[in-house]
C-alpha cells in the first residue's frame, strides 16, 4: 500500500523534475564521468580507444607546457583573489555610505557584455601602433612578460562590478543600528568597514573567494579572444591547453586528463582555502 503510494508520487513527480534532470544527465553528468574514464585511454576520436592506465597523466604532468599553464593559472587565481575583490569591497562600502545606487548599473554593465567584444576592444586599446599602445610605446599583449597581466587587467575591468554588486547586496542586510552605534562611538570610516561591514559580509566574501578559485581554473574565453595562449605560450592556461590538445592535436585521452586536472585543481584550491581560513580563524 505504502509502496504503491510512493510509486504514484514518483509518477506524479516525473513530469516536473524529469525533463530537466534527463537532459542534465545526458549532457553534463554522463559526459563528465566519461571524461574521467577517457583520461585513462588513448584515443584520436576516430580509431578504437586503447586503455593506457595513467600514461596520459604522466605525459601531461611531466610536460613543461602543462606545468607553465598551471603556474599561469595560479598567478591568475592570485590576481583575482585580491585585486577585483578589493575593488569590489571598496566600491560596495562607498555605495553603502553614499547611497549613490545609480553607479551600480554603470559598474555592472561591462559584466554582461560578450567576452569576445571586450577582447576586441582591449586588443584595440593595447594595439602597439594604435590606441593607448601607441602612446605607451609597447605591445602589452605582444610581449611574454606582460601579456597575461594585460589580459587579466581587461578581465578585471569586466569583473569587479559583479563583485561590487554582490558585496553591496550583502551590505543591504546589515542592521542599521550597528552603524548608528558606531557613529555615536565616534568610529572612523575605516573602523566602520573593518569592524562592521567586513565581519557582516564575511560569508559572502568567503563564498566569492571560493568561487574565484573554481572559476580561475576554467578561464578560456579571455585567452582565446586575445592571444590564444601566445606569445610563446606566455598566456597558456589549462583550459586553452585542453582545447588545443583535443581539437587541434586530437589527443582526446590527454585532453581529458587535463580536464580532470582542471576540476581537481579547483577542488584542491577550495580545500586549501577552507583550511587556511579555518587556521586563520583559530589564530
Amino acid at each position: 500500500m505504502k509502496g504503491m503510494k510512493r510509486k504514484r508520487k514518483t509518477i506524479m513527480l516525473l513530469p516536473f523534475i524529469g525533463p530537466a534532470l534527463l537532459l542534465n544527465i545526458a549532457i553534463v553528468l554522463v559526459p563528465s564521468v566519461a571524461t574521467v574514464v577517457l583520461a585513462f585511454f588513448e584515443w584520436s576520436g576516430l580509431d578504437i580507444p586503447r586503455f593506457v592506465g595513467i600514461k596520459n597523466f604522466v605525459t601531461v604532468l611531466t610536460e613543461s607546457l602543462f606545468l607553465r599553464a598551471v603556474a599561469h593559472n595560479i598567478v591568475w587565481t592570485a590576481i583575482f583573489l585580491t585585486v577585483p575583490i578589493a575593488m569590489g569591497l571598496l566600491g560596495a562600502e562607498l555605495l553603502r555610505r553614499t547611497k549613490r545606487e545609480l553607479f551600480q548599473p554603470i559598474y555592472f554593465f561591462p559584466v554582461i557584455l560578450p567576452v569576445v567584444v571586450i577582447g576586441l576592444i582591449w586588443r584595440y586599446i593595447y594595439h602597439p601602433t594604435r590606441g593607448l599602445g601607441k602612446i605607451l610605446g609597447v605591445s602589452l599583449l605582444g610581449q611574454p612578460s606582460t601579456a597575461l597581466f594585460a589580459i587579466a587587467f581587461a578581465n578585471i575591468w569586466a569583473w569587479w562590478g559583479f563583485l561590487c554588486a554582490v558585496f553591496y547586496s550583502a551590505t543591504q542586510g546589515i542592521p542599521h543600528d550597528l552603524y548608528e552605534a558606531a557613529t555615536l562611538d565616534g568610529a572612523t570610516g575605516w573602523q566602520e568597514f573593518r569592524y562592521i561591514t567586513l565581519p557582516q559580509i564575511l560569508p559572502t566574501l568567503t563564498f566569492m573567494e571560493v568561487m574565484t578559485i573554481i572559476w580561475s581554473f576554467q578561464v578560456f574565453d579571455w585567452i582565446w579572444v586575445t592571444t590564444q595562449g601566445g606569445p610563446a605560450g606566455a598566456t597558456e592556461l589549462l583550459a586553452t591547453l585542453l582545447y588545443k590538445r583535443a581539437f587541434y592535436a586530437y589527443k582526446m585521452g590527454e585532453a581529458s586528463a587535463i580536464g580532470v586536472c582542471i576540476s581537481l585543481f579547483g577542488l584542491a584550491g577550495v580545500g586549501l582555502y577552507y583550511y587556511l581560513a579555518r587556521r586563520g580563524a583559530e589564530i
Partner: peptide, 24 residues
C-alpha cells in the same frame, strides 16, 4: 540532494564534459 546537485552543476566547467559530448 537534487538541490545540492544542481548547485554543484553550476560550478562544473564545460571543459569537464566537452570532449565526450563533442564526440557523441
Amino acid at each position: 540532494f537534487l538541490v545540492g546537485y544542481y548547485f554543484f552543476c553550476t560550478t562544473i566547467p564545460a571543459q569537464l564534459f566537452i570532449i565526450p559530448l563533442y564526440l557523441a
